[in-house]
Every structure is written in C-alpha cells, then in structure tokens.
Amino acid sequence: MAVARTIVLRKLAAQARTRHELARALAARQVPEDVAQSVLERFEAVGLVDDATFARDWVESRQQRRHLSKSALRRELQTKGVDRDHIDAAVSHVDGGDETAAAQALAEKKLRTVVGLPREVQYRRLAGALARRGFSGSITASVLGPLLDASADADEADEPLMPG
C-alpha cells in the first residue's frame, strides 16, 4: 500500500494526472489491482485525483497555449481516460468565439512561415495547420480569408511604387 501511495504521489507531484493514467502507472509497477483501487479511491476522496477538474483545467490550458479545437481537446482527454461526461462538461465551456480566437491566433502565428508564397499556397498550408488541430472548414475559412486579405494589403503597402 505504501509503495502504491508513493508512486501516485510522485506522479501527481510532477503534474496533474487522471485516475486512468495513475491506474496504468500502478499496473506497470505490478501493484495488485485491489491495492491500486483502494489507493486511488482514497486519493479521490481527499481531492488529489479529480478527473472533472483535470478535464476543465486541461481544456483551458491547452486551448490557450496550443490553440486546439473542441474536437482535438476531446480526443486528448479521451486518450487520457477521462469519462465522457467530464469531457462534455469541460468542452462545453469552449464557445464558438473561443474556438475562432484560437484558430485566429494559430493562423497568425503560422502566417510568418508562409509570407512571400502565393496566396493559394499560403491558404493551403495554413488550412492544413488548422485542420491538424481539429478546426472545421467553416472556422478555417472564416479566419483565413480576412487574415490573408489583411496580409496582402500590408504587403502592397510595403512595396515601393514603380516610376511611371
């Protein structure tokens, strides 16, 4: 029992974890199933393991720093073993405006890497980056059109006028 508690505490000291992740860590260290369940239930009872809070914090953090869509956030939480109800509750806090803002921030960041390329290439590469983060085609179109228009207008303003 003490070994199991130590394993869980070390994992939690490094970063927040889901019950599923901790159960896998205990299983990997050959902790008996009944001991693992007992320790995990105790950690849940005292609030050190809370999948609902983990999911909410994960969504907030990942959307701000990694600019992920709802679907990408949902997939990540599923791979961490979070229950569907907790995932739904956490992702419900992300509204369309938040998702569009995340797509906008990612597109602006990636725009620097495609400056100077033809517009259709810029669009294709930026759309691919957004798609890989799980953004829908409608969000992608709503973000990239105005962004590339503004970028083109800025480029034209920087070009020196040709003598006539």
Rank of each mutant, 00 (worst) to 15 (best):
L117Y: 05
S69N: 01
S61W: 11
R56M: 14
S151M: 04
R29S: 11
Q30F: 15
L68N: 04
A25I: 10
L148S: 01
E159C: 06
A89T: 08
V8L: 01
R62Q: 09
L130I: 08
D153A: 05
D51T: 12
A141S: 06
L9C: 06
G134I: 07
S69C: 03
M1I: 11
G134M: 03
E33F: 11
A13H: 03
Q63K: 05
A103F: 14
V31W: 02
Q104I: 13
A101C: 10
A154F: 13
G145E: 13
L144G: 01
L48C: 02
V82W: 00
Q37F: 11
V31A: 02
R125K: 13
R62V: 13
A13F: 05
E60W: 06
V91W: 01
A141L: 13
D149F: 00
I7Q: 09
W58V: 08
I7T: 02
A55Y: 08
L117Q: 06
E44A: 09
A2H: 04
V49C: 01
L77R: 06
R66M: 13
V114I: 06
Q30R: 07
P146N: 10
F54N: 01
G81F: 09
V59L: 04
G96I: 14
R132I: 08
Q37A: 15
H93P: 07
W58C: 09
H67D: 02
A89M: 10
L130F: 00
E156F: 15
T100Q: 09
A14E: 03
V94D: 04
D85S: 08
T79A: 13
R62G: 10
L9V: 10
V35C: 13
A103I: 05
H86F: 14
A157Q: 14
A2S: 09
R19L: 14
L106F: 00
L148A: 02
A36Q: 03
P32F: 04
G137T: 09
L126D: 04
A89V: 15
Q122I: 14
A129I: 07
A16R: 05
T140G: 00
V143N: 03
A102N: 07
S151N: 02
D57Y: 02
A105G: 10
Q78A: 15
T53C: 04
V82M: 08
P118I: 15
L144C: 03
D98H: 14
V121N: 07
Q63M: 08
S69I: 11
R133S: 09
D95R: 04
D95G: 03
L117G: 02
I7D: 06
D88N: 09
D158A: 15
R29L: 14
Q37K: 15
L106E: 07
R132P: 13
A28I: 11
A72N: 08
R24L: 15
A90D: 01
P146E: 03
E108P: 06
A102M: 02
D149Y: 09
E44F: 05
R65D: 10
G145H: 03
D57A: 08
G96H: 08
R124V: 14
F43Y: 04
T79F: 13
E159H: 12
R65A: 04
T18A: 02
R132D: 12
A14C: 12
Y123M: 10
E33K: 14
A103E: 04
R62T: 11
A102I: 08
D153T: 15
A27G: 02
G134F: 00
S136C: 04
E60T: 09
A13V: 07
G81T: 04
V82K: 01
